[in-house]
Computed example of a mutant assay.
Amino acid sequence: MAEQLGLVMIVEDDKAIADVERLYLTQAGFGVHTESNGERALEEIRRRRPVAVVLDVGLPGLDGISVCRRLREAGDWVPVIFVTARDDEVDRLLGLELGADDYLTKPFSPRELVTRIRGILRRTNGVLASTVRRVGTIELDERERSVRASGRPVELTAMEFDLLAYLSASAGQVFTRDQLLAAVWGQANYSGARTVDVHVAQLRSKLGADSPLRTWRGVGYSVVGAAVGAST
């Protein structure tokens, strides 16, 4: 069972928390490896190639933010879920800007952690149609989970890709934040509408002038332009 679902890396210096996370993830069918040191975690992530990383922000020495930054700078886009004891908007936004896929604030339910990981992996590894969707100058390959803007490759997190894919599949349709939370994140209002705003802002930043995203003030978001899909 664990081999089927893949290995999750827990990076947490509080042994009691790490043990609970390990217990619930193991019961859910995942393989689990734990580290309490940021430098060591980087080495093991590169060596073991986990399917997801549960990363504590407040690690001693090399903290979780630095670990995530180094992974992204090296081109490693393994799904990362930040765990933080600091419940303030700055940490949340910084984590998302670094390319984290999700975050949980301590204390949290270990069952919620399992749910979040399953959701990310379901979207990342799900069986998708072999199609390339084009909206304006954006080319989105659902099978390869890759995006190009005016021919240039754009690196997106799993959540950013899922959000862009969902909006572009219904180009022209306006979705509220609650609708996007339910469809892309899997549960409306689980982390607030601000999460959608942050991901849209990050997509716009990465896509630049090619961005087809439109804000409907007081309503939500849409992708502008007709989507064209072609078999590959």
Rank of each mutant, 00 (worst) to 15 (best):
R72A: 00
L98W: 05
R92D: 01
R46N: 14
L42Y: 08
G58D: 12
R69T: 12
A85W: 06
V54T: 15
V51W: 15
R48S: 14
I65C: 04
L59D: 10
V51P: 09
E89T: 14
E39N: 06
G64N: 07
L94K: 13
V67M: 06
R47D: 06
L71S: 05
E97V: 00
L42A: 03
E39Y: 06
P50V: 08
R72P: 00
P60T: 01
L42Q: 05
R92W: 02
A85H: 05
G95R: 03
V78P: 05
G64S: 10
A85D: 00
R48H: 10
E89C: 00
D76N: 15
W77N: 13
E73S: 07
P60S: 03
L96C: 08
V80A: 06
L62D: 03
R86E: 11
A85Q: 08
G75A: 01
L55Y: 04
V90G: 13
G61C: 05
E44G: 00
R40K: 15
C68D: 10
V57R: 02
V57P: 03
P60M: 02
P79N: 12
D76E: 14
G95L: 09
L59T: 03
L59W: 08
R70I: 06
L62Q: 11
G61D: 05
V80H: 07
G61N: 05
R40N: 03
D91W: 09
G75T: 05
V51M: 14
R72M: 05
L93F: 07
R47F: 07
G95A: 03
V90A: 15
R40P: 00
R70N: 08
V83E: 03
D76I: 13
S66V: 01
L71Q: 04
R48P: 06
L55I: 07
V83M: 15
D87Q: 10
L59P: 13
R46W: 08
P50N: 14
L59V: 04
E43L: 14
I81S: 12
E89P: 00
L96I: 12
I45F: 12
T84V: 09
R86L: 14
A41E: 11
E97F: 02
A85C: 02
R46D: 11
D91F: 14
I45Y: 09
D87K: 13
V78C: 12
G58N: 14
W77G: 00
R47C: 01
I45H: 11
I65V: 12
G95S: 03
E89N: 06
L55E: 06
L98N: 06
R69V: 07
L96D: 00
